[in-house]
Simulated scan of single mutants.
Amino acid sequence: MSGLSIKYQQSEVTRILDGKCIQYQLVDISQDNALRDEMRALAGNPKATPPQILFVEAVEQNTLQEFLKLA
C-alpha cells in the first residue's frame, strides 16, 4: 500500500468520524513497535494492518457504532 493510499484512508476515516461528531484521538503506530503490537493484539491478528480497512467495512455495513463500541 502506497503512502498516498494510506493518507487517503486516514483522511476518509477522520472525515467520517468528524461528520458523525464522534470524538477520537489520532495515534501514529508507524514509529512505535509497542503501539503496533498493541493494535495487533486488540485486533487478534499478529499480522494485522491498521484498522482503517475494517473501519470502512463497518461504515459500508452501517455497523460503525458497534465497531467503535459506542452502541
Rank of each mutant, 00 (worst) to 15 (best):
T49I: 12
S30V: 03
L54S: 13
F55V: 06
K7A: 04
M39L: 13
Q9I: 02
A71V: 01
D18H: 03
A41V: 02
E38C: 03
Q52K: 08
G3C: 05
F67C: 00
Y24V: 06
Y8P: 02
F55L: 04
A58N: 07
N33R: 11
E66S: 14
I16C: 04
D37H: 11
L68M: 09
Y8K: 15
R36T: 10
S5F: 07
I29T: 05
A34F: 06
A71D: 03
N62H: 14
D32R: 04
L4Q: 07
G44S: 11
Q31T: 11
F55W: 14
Y8I: 08
N45E: 15
A71R: 03
D18Y: 01
M39A: 04
K47P: 00
F67M: 01
P50E: 14
E60G: 01
E38K: 09
N45Y: 09
K47Q: 09
Y24Q: 10
V59H: 10
N62I: 10
Y24I: 07
D37C: 06
A43H: 04
R40M: 00
D28R: 04
D32K: 02
K7S: 06
A71Q: 06
L54I: 03
N33W: 05
F55S: 07
L35T: 03
T63P: 01
L26N: 04
G19V: 11
A48P: 07
K7H: 10
Q10E: 15
V59S: 12
C21W: 15
D37L: 09
A48E: 02
I53H: 13
L42W: 08
E57P: 00
L54Y: 07
F55N: 03
Q61A: 14
A43L: 05
R15I: 00
S2N: 14
T63W: 02
S11E: 03
L26E: 10
R15W: 00
R15M: 05
L64T: 08
L70I: 15
R36L: 13
I22G: 09
A48N: 12
D32W: 06
K20W: 11
L35C: 12
N62F: 13
D28P: 01
L35G: 12
L54V: 04
C21N: 15
L42S: 09
Q52P: 03
Q9W: 09
K20E: 15
A58S: 10
G3Y: 04
G44N: 09
L64S: 08
A58L: 09
R15E: 13
Q23H: 04
Q23C: 05
D18V: 00
N45H: 05
E57K: 11
G3V: 06
